[in-house]
């Protein structure tokens, strides 16, 4: 019961309060942008973020697909309780109007009204040594998710092929994913793993680079290329189209170069919960 309430609080925090790193990047974009309409859109975005925080309202009406990444030690004692609590918390968050009922049957479109259905909420497990757990809450909006894509490149196309794929997707998506966006890229692994890594890459705060220099350099280069597209805020043009690019990678099959790309809207909502082996919890952003 207690864990359920903690998760409920984390969902509410994620939905109503933008993480400080995202706020700072939006503010930087506002100060940097010279395109008048895009600047006015950034102003509305900042006003909205502040108003939502002050009134404890959802930042965006698309409160997303409730997505959880669990970074869990092999010896963490509350695995079952954690999963049950996530499902209950999502359902309670819906009845408390923290989130919109956003999960429907793919065949009939029928909405059960509680954000719970087959495989939803979506829970991703990453197991490691240890006896504690971190739960990442990532409500993922539909408009930006629709701009996500997978490319099974030929290995001969190499890193240049990855760069072209990202730029091409951003131009195709235009204003639809609510730019300035954040790009998560998963390189290698296979079709499924590349996309999971791409989404996992979004958990990293903006401005924090990958621990390997070669990956960090590619993140910065892609950020620079992405901002040459001129998409601008909400598609109105200008110098800021993407706030950051985050890459994760896995070893690949010699014949494949999979690249998964997950696009996140400017409303990059996150929260995380740390739970130790005694059940002590801490909610952070």
């Amino acid at each position: 019961m207690e864990l359920e309430n903690v998760i409920l609080d984390a969902i509410k925090l994620a939905e109503t309060t933008i993480p400080s790193d995202v706020y700072e990047h939006l503010n930087l974009a506002y100060n940097k942008e010279k395109n008048e309409i895009s600047r006015s859109q950034l102003k509305s975005i900042l006003d909205n973020v502040e108003y939502a925080r002050e009134k404890s309202l959802p930042i965006c009406q698309d409160t997303g697909t409730q997505t959880f990444f669990l970074d869990v030690g092999f010896d963490f004692p509350f695995k079952k309780e954690l999963v049950n609590s996530i499902i209950k918390a999502v359902s309670s968050a819906t009845s408390l109007y923290y989130i919109r009922p956003n999960a429907v049957d793919p065949f009939t479109g029928k909405n059960p009204g509680n954000n719970v259905g087959r495989y939803i909420p979506y829970i991703n497990w990453f197991l490691r040594e240890g006896n504690d757990a971190t739960v990442y809450v990532l409500p993922k909006g539909g408009g930006s998710e629709n701009a996500s894509a997978l490319s099974m490149l030929k290995p001969g196309e190499g890193i240049k092929g990855i760069k072209k794929f990202v730029v091409d997707q951003l131009v195709k998506a235009g204003a639809n994913p609510c730019p300035p966006t954040i790009i998560g890229l998963g390189i290698g692994g296979g079709s499924d793993l590349s996309l999971i890594l791409a989404k996992k890459a979004l958990l990293r705060p903006l401005g924090v680079r990958h621990e390997e220099k070669r990956v960090a350099d590619l993140e910065l280069e892609l950020l620079e290329l992405a901002n040459r597209t001129g998409v601008g805020t909400m598609g109105w043009g200008g110098s800021v189209s993407v706030l950051d690019v985050h890459i994760e990678y896995a070893y690949r099959h010699p014949a494949s170069l999979p690249v998964g790309m997950v696009v996140q809207c400017w409303a990059d909502r996150r929260a995380k919960i740390h739970i130790d082996s005694k059940g002590n919890v801490e909610v952070k952003q």
Binding site: Q41, Y51, P58, Q61, G141, C178, C265
Partner: peptide, 13 residues
């Protein structure tokens, strides 16, 4: 016409 995407709380006002 377009309204700023994501500015849900502000629009609701």
């Amino acid at each position: 016409a377009t309204y700023t995407g994501g500015a849900g709380a502000l629009a609701a006002r």
